[in-house]
């Protein structure tokens, strides 16, 4: 009898714990958010230390990403096709977000990091980025620093063949989202889906 009482007591205790656990779980909203397009990292990744130059020649470091959300794209200004198309699309996404998020602080910055520092000087970058409208800027820097940041983010780039346009740079075409804590939080693979990206960024801004 003693042993069966013990079993009952243990069973009851286990049951009580389970109920408590369920109640505790329910008190927090654990419903997984449904992203249409973004691949969201289970644990955001802290950016490595790096030092680039923005389009005004000022240092761009990990700390530059704090307190703002950033949509980051690696490309180059001589890229005639996919780079301007992507920046154009990101600018449209930002304009759509602006209709829903009245506080400018909630809108993502759009940053082109040029993987062609040989040709993309700050002046070239400033002139180029200005074409795409509010919130779009560009940066670049020494190859070693670019490689350090790109490698940490899983971004590939490599100087390609000489063509009629000088030379090409082959590069990953994904767009990365960096959160306000300067962490890599989500990636949007190419080609860009404007509506799905807008919906996911609304979710990520909650």
């Amino acid at each position: 009898m003693g042993s069966s009482r013990k079993i009952v007591a243990v069973t009851l205790a286990a049951l009580a714990l389970s109920v408590a656990a369920v109640l505790a779980f329910r008190s927090v909203d654990h419903t997984p958010r449904q992203f249409l397009y973004a691949t969201v990292l289970p644990e955001p990744m802290v950016l490595p230390e790096f030092r680039l130059n923005d389009q005004d020649g000022q240092p761009l470091t990990r700390d530059s990403f704090r307190d703002r959300r950033t949509l980051l794209f690696f490309g180059f200004t001589h890229c005639p096709d996919i780079c301007p198309a992507t920046l154009q699309q990101l600018a449209v996404v930002r304009r759509k977000l602006a209709l829903e998020l009245p506080d400018e602080q909630d809108l993502p910055d759009i940053l082109l990091i040029s993987v062609d520092p040989e040709r993309d000087t700050p002046q070239v970058l400033r002139e180029y980025a200005g074409h795409f409208g509010d919130g779009v800027t560009a940066a670049s820097g020494e190859l070693g620093e670019l490689t350090k940041l790109a490698a940490a983010l899983g971004i590939y780039f490599e100087k390609g063949d000489v063509s009629g346009n000088g030379y090409n740079v082959n590069h990953s075409a994904a767009v990365l989202m960096i959160n306000r804590a300067a962490e890599f939080q989500a990636v949007f693979s190419a080609p860009i889906d404007i509506d799905a990206m807008f919906a996911d960024l609304m979710l990520l801004s909650e």
């Binding site: 096709d81 390609g160 063509s163 009629g164 090409n168 990953s172 190419a190 080609p191």
Partner: peptide, 17 residues
């Protein structure tokens, strides 16, 4: 004037004439 093609393979954009 040249015909070029951008291809996306494994997420990497490449351009060729």
């Amino acid at each position: 004037a040249e015909i070029h093609e951008t291809t996306l393979s494994d997420g990497i954009a490449r351009m060729q004439a």
